[in-house]
Nucleic acid binder design. Structure first.
Length: 180
DNA sequence: ACTGGGTAAACAG
DNA sequence: CTGTTTACCCAGT
């Protein structure tokens, strides 16, 4: 895995690139959190990691990722994306992550709505699990998925980040709940 | 506001 | 294969 630090107004994110693209994005201070708590977020196939690879477009990927992250943190949809390496996910998880990317900034969906768009209206709970396993938060906007009850649901990076990201996009949680 | 039953998927053993 | 654990949902109190 190839690490890049991305400075933003909200802190330094860490982006990990495999030979196939962006594989993981960590919030600032996710390091300390992952040391203390037994956060088993990454699909970390520490065994299958290639020793020394240097993807041809790595620097371009890093620049594109930094720009995309900057846009996302300003509440805009990125104009360009790096390739995403989702090889660690199951088929179901990848379907959920694809669906996540079709939710525009400023909008939210419930876990049940997302499940319905996948043609599995009863899989709300499983969708929650897949969101929690999303290795690329912010860019793959799992923060736009909330509980149907009006609650926030959960967030792998901590609920404070979820609230923050939604606030940046202008989502008023109280109003979003009412409109439902 | 709270509860219980239903549910899909991942995971440990 | 069975049992356990979820970032859930909904119809009942």
């Amino acid at each position: 895995m190839n690490l890049a630090r991305i400075q933003t107004p909200l802190g330094t994110f860490r982006a990990y690139f495999s030979a196939h693209g962006l594989a993981r994005l960590e919030f600032p201070s996710a390091r300390a959190a992952s040391r203390n708590k037994t956060r088993r977020l990454p699909p970390s196939n520490s065994k299958t990691q290639a020793p020394d690879f240097q993807p041809a477009g790595l620097h371009v990927w890093q620049a594109v990722t930094a720009k995309a992250l900057g846009a996302a943190l300003s509440g805009h949809a990125p104009k360009a994306w790096p390739p995403l390496d989702w090889s660690g996910g199951t088929d179901f998880q990848r379907r959920v992550w694809v669906a996540l990317r079709r939710i525009p900034p400023g909008q939210t969906r419930t876990y049940a709505q997302l499940a319905a768009t996948l043609g599995q209206p009863r899989a709300a709970r499983a969708v929650g699990g897949a969101c929690g396993a999303n290795p690329i938060p912010v860019l793959v906007p799992c923060h736009r998925v909330t509980a149907a009850s009006g609650g926030l649901g959960g967030f792998s990076g901590g609920l404070a980040w979820k609230r923050r990201l939604l606030a940046i996009e202008g989502v008023n949680l109280r109003r979003a709940r009412k409109l439902r």
